[in-house]
């Protein structure tokens, strides 16, 4: 991560790099739609079966991914 983050200066090759960051958004989509990953009861956390806490945990995680993309692309 040595690259400079100059969000506002439109460079020749920067837009492409910025666009690639959008691929990160596929991670939460695959993680929550690939049901076989989480269609089971164990391990439980505080009595809550895996099926439920796994999907609940992905709600803030997905927001985090969106936040990262928002920061990297400089809000454009």
């Amino acid at each position: 991560m040595a690259e400079k983050r100059e969000a506002n200066k439109p460079g020749a090759e920067k837009p492409r790099r910025r666009r690639a960051i959008y691929l990160l958004l596929l991670v939460p989509i695959v993680a929550t739609l690939w049901v076989p990953i989480y269609n089971r009861l164990d391990p439980e956390i505080a009595g809550i079966p895996f099926f439920y806490w796994y999907q609940l945990v992905w709600v803030p995680l997905a927001a985090l991914f969106l936040y990262v993309v928002y920061r990297v692309e400089g809000g454009n």
């Binding site: 989509i29 929550t32 739609l33 997905a62």
Partner: peptide
């Protein structure tokens, strides 16, 4: 019935893009 949770998680990627 829990499908509402992944639904309400991934819809925001669409909104964002």
């Amino acid at each position: 019935g829990f499908f509402a949770v992944p639904y309400a998680t991934i819809t925001y990627a669409l909104m964002f893009v």
